[in-house]
Write a protein that binds this DNA or RNA. Structure first.
Length: 517
RNA sequence: GGCGCCGUAGCCAAGCGGCCUAAGGCAGCGGAUUGCAAAUCCGCCAUCGCGGGUUCGAAUCCCGCCGGCGCCUCCA
């Protein structure tokens, strides 16, 4: 089975072949930390976290880097507005970003390099580019000269001529070419500044990613990720300056994820297009407001309404290259789908008395234990679903397809539990129980690759929880007596009244359980 | 205007030339199960935007049209 990935550079699916056999380097463009993260900022990290999980599972040793842009015009402006230093603002928003990543289950990142911690390296790279004739200083700035780079535009498939034709009036007309971009920017008084051979200033936007990616992953590395919106100019420029500097290929596979959009109107948190008329802009803004009432603003707000795991599942339910329409309805729908998994997990824990979340499962495919032989038909089905899960993941990380097989696995296991009456008399059937447990372990193993079902979903917490639980147990016990006495009127009344309080009762073969909705 | 992407059931979505008389989820309908429910299971629910073409064969490739969207502004 071979892994194939869609490479933006070649616009085709290619067989995945790392630079160094057995090892993979992934660099993902991270956030500019000037405001709280919104849902769109979570898409890339969740996707590439999943990609790393899968590659690791496949046996690769993976290094995953996400950069933090902590110096930038937006930071400077926002910090000024809030009456704080750029450093303070960056620290606060970086923490917000980390908090959200943790909640989303993004936990495979090895390095979070900050731009401000790599100024010296950036200056070295800029100097090299000047020496090699690809860049020129200009009144305290330094620019990369795009016409010196033979294949400039190869990633986004633009030619310098086209860009010249469509170029708008530039603020700085002294640049040799309007498309030339800044490597180093002279600072104005009061702005953060670092000394440099070209005078006090700060780095341009693209240079940090070149420097930090190559520092942690080497001059040629495997996977560079980011949102589709970064394709041009950011990635194009990153590619140009990196290859001009080293003379080596920069990145093997460019992977771009689709953007989160608010109900098909406009991407979340983005600026509005300058070609549309005013009406369109207002409509887009309105749609943004409506659909993005929670997540478009900040992820934190969204998490007050939906468990982070549901949001993660939502992101992974569609292919990473497709745009996703964000809406609370959609996420609520995904949440309903997930509930079935949680119930199966509870069923498992009831039947076996084991803690599903504490189960040790294989983290590498080669360590995956073989399934039992019997019962053959059930095992065959489980095996087939496992294969289809991998087939999907091998096909450009098709998490949507993989999620589908997880649902089918759930269905198959539930059917098996029913058929063998594992909640009742069948519990003593050791063969059936072994098969059931193996299937559940596989479910966990596969879910781990997607980064879901790793720990119990947090119930709405309250100080009275323990007491509530005891009271519910008491009501259930009283109701059981009523049912025994065939006093169904009373039994139903208890159940109906509890339903009004959002407590659902289930009379199962081996007893009644209650669940708070 | 330039470059590019997308259009599959009520909604979301996989599918990348034959395994598709098209996964999966949500909603809906019928049934099994249940004292009744809940949960679960079984079954039903699309010919793939439209029109041409290529091919023995197309949702999948090509052309045109219609509709939606992105980038061309330091937005992930």
């Amino acid at each position: 089975m071979t892994l194939r990935v869609y490479n933006t550079l070649t616009r085709t699916k290619e067989e995945f072949q790392p630079v160094v056999p057995g090892k993979v380097g992934i660099y993902l463009c991270g956030p500019t930390v000037y405001k709280p993260a919104h849902i769109g900022h979570m898409v890339g990290p969740v996707i590439f976290d999943t990609i790393k999980r899968y590659l690791t599972y496949c046996g690769y040793e993976v290094t995953f880097v996400i950069n933090i842009t902590d110096v930038d015009d937006k930071l400077i402006n926002r910090a000024r507005e809030r009456g704080m230093t750029v450093e303070e603002l960056a620290r606060e928003m970086t923490q917000d970003y980390f908090d959200n990543l943790e909640l989303m289950g993004v936990e495979t990142v090895d390095h979070f390099p900050r731009a401000t911690e790599h100024i010296a390296e950036m200056q070295q790279m800029i100097s090299r580019l000047i020496e090699k004739g690809y860049a020129y200083p200009l009144e305290g700035d330094v620019y990369f000269e795009v016409t010196k780079d033979e294949d400039y535009g190869k990633l986004s498939r633009r030619s310098v001529e086209e860009m010249l034709a469509g170029a708008r009036v530039e603020a700085n007309e002294r640049k040799r070419n309007p498309a030339d971009f800044a490597l180093w920017k002279k600072s104005k008084p009061g702005e953060p500044a670092w000394d440099s051979p070209w005078g006090p200033g700060r780095p341009g936007w693209h240079i940090e990613c070149s420097v930090m990616s190559m520092k942690y992953l080497g001059e040629t590395f495997d996977i560079h990720g980011g949102g589709l919106d970064l394709l041009f100019p950011h990635h194009e420029n990153e590619l140009a300056q990196s290859e001009s500097c080293t003379g080596k290929p920069f990145v093997r596979y460019w992977l771009h994820n689709g953007l989160m959009q608010a109900s098909g109107a406009a991407k979340v948190g983005g600026a509005h297009d300058r070609h549309g008329d005013l009406v369109d802009q207002l409509a887009a803004q309105e749609a943004n407001k409506l659909a993005g009432s929670k997540g478009a603003d900040s992820v934190k707000g969204l998490f007050e309404v939906f468990p982070p795991e549901t949001v993660r599942f939502f992101i992974l339910s569609t292919h990473y290259r497709s745009p996703i329409d964000f809406s609370e309805e959609r996420i609520a729908e995904i949440g309903k789908g997930l509930e079935g998994f949680y119930r199966l997990i509870e069923t498992y824990q009831r039947i076996t008395g084991k803690d599903f979340y504490a189960l040790e499962t294989a983290t590498r495919r080669n360590d995956s234990p073989p399934l039992p032989e019997e019962p053959a038909d059930f095992i065959a089905e489980v095996q087939q679903l496992r294969d289809r899960f991998f087939e999907a993941m091998d096909d450009d990380f098709n998490t949507g397809g993989a999620v589908g097989t997880l649902y089918e696995l759930r269905r198959a296991i539930n059917a098996f539990v029913n058929q063998r009456q594992l909640e009742g008399a069948g519990r003593s059937d050791r063969q059936a129980m072994a098969a059931f447990e193996a299937a559940m372990r596989l479910l966990k193993e596969l879910a781990n690759i997607l980064g879901v079902f790793r720990r119990p979903v947090q119930k709405p917490a309250g100080a009275d929880d323990e007491m509530v639980g005891r009271l519910l147990d008491l009501l259930v016990a009283i109701r059981a007596e009523a049912r025994k006495a065939k006093n169904f009127a009373m039994a139903d009344k208890i159940r109906d009244e509890l339903a009004k309080l959002n407590v659902t009762l289930e009379d199962r073969p081996d007893g009644t359980i209650w669940r708070r909705n």
